[in-house]
Computed example of a mutant assay.
Amino acid sequence: MFKGVLLGFMAFAAFAISDAFVKSLRGSLPAYEAVFFGAALGLSALPFIKGAGDRWRDVVLAQRPGLWLVRAGASAVGSIAAVIAFTALPMAEAFVLIFLLPIFVTILSVLVLKEHVGWRRWSAVVAGFVGVLVVLRPGFRVLGIGHLAATVCGLSGAVSMIALRLSGAHEKRVTLYGAGMIGSMLVAGMMMLASFRWPDPAQWGLLLGYGLLAALGAVLLMLATQKAPANHVAPTQYSQMLWAVLFGYVLFDDPLDWPMAIGIAIILGAGLFTFVREEKVTRWWKRIRMI
């Protein structure tokens, strides 16, 4: 159990460092171009994720093709939105909005899965949105494309999670992972055809860090969920916020004022509470292979 949770923290540290690499591009490449190369490099994780009985064609051959396409599309939209958000916003502020994901999952669970959601989880939803208002302070500061992109990223992640709930018990791990990488490559690849710019050596270095560290995070997360229940590993995702605050302060001179700190605490608390309630109410992660 301890090793699984520790691997979870390591996985999300790798994801956070990957995000710092893509933020270091500072918009010097279009977001979709960064996503294309990041996803292509992310395929390097496939040999480690592929099970003994899996075939390479299982990456794209799903038991439920419609849900595979939903995950592929949601991953592509979410990845592009994430790059835009990290480029335009301080890392901590981007994560605040991305971490609305469990709140969006609760809402979509009602709309799509017809789940019953009690007053406790609805209270967490309300608290999460209050935290967003505290962070963003609409009317007191200018909101831009980065805020919209981060919100879209969180919503896309929630859509992908709902598709995972519906298909996870029927699909292989390599299929679930492949949907995100292949979908991102196809969508971003088509978008960059019109105005492709070949990266320079410095940009290649940042892209390598972005893609390979994300692949490392995926492998570590897989190992973590093999050693500990997924509901114990999932909350380690919130350690990314600590990395975001640290990287933002040390590397990017990102400001962090008291209202933002209070809003971050509210949103993280609402998200963690949602995870706890999900375990008690639905226990969905005990029925699927998480990736």
Rank of each mutant, 00 (worst) to 15 (best):
F48E: 06
G73Q: 10
W285L: 13
L213A: 00
A81E: 01
F2I: 12
L6V: 13
A230P: 01
I262F: 08
Y32A: 14
F252C: 05
L155E: 04
A218L: 07
S75F: 13
D200A: 11
G189Q: 07
V219A: 04
C153I: 00
T151Q: 07
S79T: 10
E33A: 08
A234Y: 03
G211D: 02
S156A: 15
T175C: 11
K172G: 13
A214C: 01
A16C: 06
L208S: 06
G263E: 11
N231R: 11
F99V: 12
W119S: 04
L111D: 04
V245Y: 09
S24Q: 09
E171K: 09
A149V: 05
K114A: 15
D19Y: 00
A88K: 14
V142F: 12
S195V: 01
L256E: 05
V5C: 05
G248C: 05
W204R: 11
F140A: 11
Y249K: 04
M192H: 03
G66P: 07
V5A: 06
Y249D: 04
R64F: 05
K172Y: 05
R287F: 09
I145S: 10
G146Y: 09
I291N: 14
M191C: 06
M181S: 15
P259K: 07
F37N: 00
G180F: 09
G168I: 05
L251M: 12
A52I: 02
L251A: 12
S24G: 10
S44Q: 00
F12M: 09
P259D: 06
L41E: 01
S44L: 06
A194E: 14
P30L: 07
F48T: 08
P229F: 03
V245P: 15
